[in-house]
C-alpha cells in the first residue's frame, strides 16, 4: 500500500515530477495550438471567418473529462506522497523543537539542548514542534518538510538524512520583526559521532554554559556579543555602573546593574533603550531563576567574546 518507508525528499520529488511534467506538456500544447490558430487564421490569411458551428457537445465533454481524470490522478498521487510525510518510522529518534520570536531551540532525549538541529545520518528523526508565542513554521527545504508551530498545540514532522552535511532550516510563517533572521542549520553527523555528542554532558556553569543559554533562549538573534548592530542593543558594552539612555519624552536613563538586567529580561517593555524598537518578548515564566542569574553574571562580565570565536570590534 503506502510506501511508508520512503524518505520524505524522495516521496515528494516523485509527485513534483509527475505534476510538473503533465503541466508543462499541457502548457506547451495550449500555447502551441493558440499560436498556430493566430498565425493560420490571421486576417491576412483568412479574410472572412469560416461559417462553422460555435459549440460542440462532444468536444465540451471530452475536454471536461480528460482534465478531470488528470487532476484526480494528481490528487491521488499527491495524497499518497503526503502519507509518506505523516507515517513516521517507529524507531525514529524523538527531538523537540521550541520556536519563539525569533529563534529555535532543540531538546534531545536525555535533556541536551542546542540552537542548531543536530541529527544522526541514516536514522529517522521525529520532531515535535511547539511555539512559545506566535505562529512559526519549521521548514527544511532539503528534506521537503514543513509544519507550523502553533501556540497550544504540538505538531510533528519526520525525516531521514541519508548522509552527513549541513542544511538550512527556516521559519516560514511570518512572525514579526526579525522573521527573516529565524534561520538555523541542520547538522547531520555520522551516527557514532552523534551518539558521543548526545552523551557529552553540557557545562553546568561558566562562559560555555552562558553561551549555550544565550542560544537556547534566542538572545543572539537580536543582540550581538561583538558590537554588531542588530535589532536590539549589543551586549558588548554592557558593564556594571554604565548609564543607558532610555526612550521616552523626558531624558530618561538607567544604571546597569543586576536589577536593571533582571527587569530587562522579565519586563522588557518597561525600559526601552533609546533608538531601538519595543519588540522584545517577556521571559517571565519562561526562564528559570538559576538560568537568569547565570545570564546576568555573564552579561556583567567585561570579556564576553573570548570563548565564542567572534572577534572584538
Amino acid at each position: 500500500m503506502t510506501p511508508t518507508w520512503l524518505d520524505t525528499t524522495e516521496a515528494v520529488d516523485k509527485v513534483f515530477l509527475y505534476i510538473f511534467g503533465i503541466s508543462l506538456a499541457l502548457l506547451i500544447l495550449i500555447t502551441a495550438v493558440m499560436v498556430f490558430f493566430i498565425i493560420r487564421f490571421h486576417r491576412s490569411r483568412q479574410t472572412k471567418p469560416k461559417d462553422i458551428p460555435s459549440s460542440c457537445l462532444w468536444l465540451e465533454i471530452t475536454w471536461t473529462l480528460i482534465p478531470t481524470l488528470i487532476v484526480l490522478s494528481m490528487f491521488w498521487y499527491g495524497w499518497q506522497g503526503y502519507l509518506s510525510l505523516t507515517n513516521v518510522p517507529s524507531d525514529a529518534l524523538p527531538i523537540k523543537a521550541v520556536a519563539r520570536q525569533w529563534s529555535w531551540s532543540f531538546v534531545y532525549p536525555g535533556g541536551r539542548t542546542s540552537s542548531k538541529l543536530v541529527v544522526p545520518a541514516g536514522k529517522a528523526v521525529r520532531i515535535a514542534i511547539v511555539s512559545e508565542d506566535v505562529l512559526h513554521s519549521l521548514y527544511i527545504p532539503a528534506f521537503r518538510i514543513k509544519k507550523d508551530a502553533v501556540p497550544g498545540m504540538t505538531t510533528h514532522v519526520w525525516f531521514r538524512a541519508p548522509e552527513s552535511g549541513s542544511f538550512d532550516l527556516f521559519c516560514t510563517e511570518y512572525c514579526g520583526l526579525a522573521h527573516a533572521s529565524m534561520i538555523t542549520t541542520v547538522e547531520v553527523l555520522p551516527a557514532d559521532e552523534f551518539d558521543s555528542w548526545l552523551q557529552t554532558p553540557q557545562e553546568a556553569a561558566g562562559t560555555a554554559k552562558s553561551r549555550q543559554l544565550l542560544e537556547q533562549y534566542g538572545c543572539l538573534a537580536c543582540h550581538s556579543l561583538d558590537g554588531t548592530p542588530r535589532i536590539g542593543p549589543s551586549f558588548a558594552r554592557l558593564a556594571e555602573g554604565e548609564k543607558v539612555q532610555l526612550a521616552g519624552e523626558a531624558e530618561k536613563s538607567a544604571i546597569v546593574n543586576r536589577e536593571y538586567l533582571k527587569r530587562s529580561i522579565l519586563d522588557p517593555q518597561s525600559e526601552i533603550v533609546q533608538g531601538y524598537p519595543a519588540v522584545m518578548p517577556s521571559f517571565r515564566d519562561k526562564i528559570s531563576e538559576q538560568d537568569l542569574q547565570l545570564l546576568i553574571d555573564f552579561l556583567l562580565q567585561t570579556d564576553k567574546t573570548s570563548t565564542s570565536g567572534e572577534r572584538r570590534p
Binding site: V12, V15, G78, Y82, R144
Partner: peptide, 10 residues
C-alpha cells in the same frame, strides 16, 4: 503543485 498535499508542504 499547491493543491497537491505532498508538494504543497515544500
Amino acid at each position: 503543485v499547491l493543491g497537491s498535499a505532498a508538494t504543497d508542504v515544500h
